[in-house]
Design a protein around this nucleic acid. Structure first.
Lengths: 229, 229
DNA sequence: AGCTAATTTGGTCGAATGGCCAAGACCGAG
DNA sequence: CTCGGTCTTGGCCATTCGACCAAATTAGCT
């Protein structure tokens, strides 16, 4: 399209290379989510992006490249969405709740790159694997930071294996993508808030709570701390 | 098929047809878990099961049939393992804890059929889909039963959306399969118990608990109850 | 306008896939 | 020993895959 003039100095003859790339990743994400990476053909991606297979090859040398680009985008978007949602919130605990919301909304209503990143993990070949692993670790470290801050704010139980907590919450939230269907009465934000209340306060009634609960937690932790290797 | 007259009347000349089928499903499960269904070839399965592609075709007419058989087996094993682990336990809450343990142990250390059932869902073609959906609903209904019993025993909060709780716990537990590696210091049983304590008692300290907590839960529930369709 | 490089076109290529089968091997029954 | 079925063999086939390319086209630049 237009908007050339000064400013955006395009390489040469590009209608809108950025937008075209966007269209490819959008189409690829949709197909990967529906059928999985291996079951999707490059021809399908090209058709869905309204171009011929050769044109697709010009932009991405291989199918793997598309997957890697999509996953990078997924990490980027996930971090950005949560950063945006939590910015300006002073309470670390409340940041966590808002972050969960944002993550789940992106996963359910956003584009499919985050879903592919989370669920099409095995499709990465060893060559591309290392690059995406680093990206994915950025996402994990980002959440770890949110959790450490929240834990440090004092309202959480004193002895918690943060890594285990992260896996716990990440699993519960991400699994929503496997059963959520739009318009079944629950919005992603409602689900996230309900999950947050489960996470924060537990499912049992106060009367069932043992008096030595934190000692109990500590004992569980002791076991997971002795991870040798 | 076999099993006619009395006892183990073999059809004719079978070394051990049941064991051979077992070997196929074991090999297929391993490969499907490692690379996914679509990325696995029938030749690989045959080779891993120490037979030629033609022999595999004799037992399973199509690759889809193998997947369906494997998933059926996964449901069967998952239900059986949890039933076995919870049998004889009088406390419904304790049954839940033991069930989580058994489920996670099967998922981490058991054969791969449960993993494939849970994570290779999209690979099912529409033809085979309906049959496996019914099986999978059996598994969900089974857990729903455990949860309803536990909820009815009185120690849980009064107002809980059981379906949401099931999705929550199922996600957290199943996600373990994506990061668990044998010998990193945590056994599946330890992880299950830690997750159980998170689930039961929550992550926040008692002092952070609002006095009107159950009203808070009720409000969350009100939203998820008005699901129209 | 003319030049030049970016981009698209429409198709080809060898390799690999899932499904299939005719022939034979095997083994208990009679 | 011979029969009759189950099961295995090893390869074949049509199809489709990802990758690739030379030629044509486009559009910004001087």
């Amino acid at each position: 399209m237009a908007k050339t003039e000064l400013a955006t100095r395009r390489p040469a003859a590009a209608p809108a290379p950025a937008d075209t790339d966007e269209k490819v990743l959008l189409a690829a994400g949709k197909l990967f989510r529906e059928k999985g990476f291996a079951a999707t053909t490059v021809r399908e991606i090209a058709a869905a992006a309204q171009m011929l297979p050769g044109s697709l090859h010009y932009r991405y040398a291989s199918k793997d490249d598309i997957l890697v680009a999509l996953m990078r985008r997924g990490v980027e978007r996930a971090i950005r969405a949560v950063e945006l949602a939590t910015a300006g919130e002073p309470s670390a605990i409340e940041r966590l709740r808002l972050g969960l919301r944002a993550h789940l909304e992106l996963l359910c209503n956003g584009d499919d790159s985050l879903y592919v990143l989370l669920f099409d993990w095995r499709s990465l070949t060893s060559g591309a694997l290392s690059g995406v692993i680093r990206e994915r670790e950025r996402l994990e470290a980002f959440w770890e930071g949110l959790l450490v801050e929240a834990h440090g704010s004092g309202v959480a139980r004193p002895l918690l294996d943060i890594e285990l907590v992260r896996h716990f919450g990440f699993g519960a939230i991400n699994w929503v993508a496997t059963w959520y269907r739009e318009g079944d009465g629950r919005t992603p934000a409602q689900i996230a808030d309900a999950f947050w209340s489960f996470l924060a306060f537990g499912l049992l009634h106060e009367s069932a709570r043992p008096p030595d609960l934190d000692t109990h937690f500590a004992a569980l932790l002791a076991a997971s701390f002795k991870k040798g290797s």
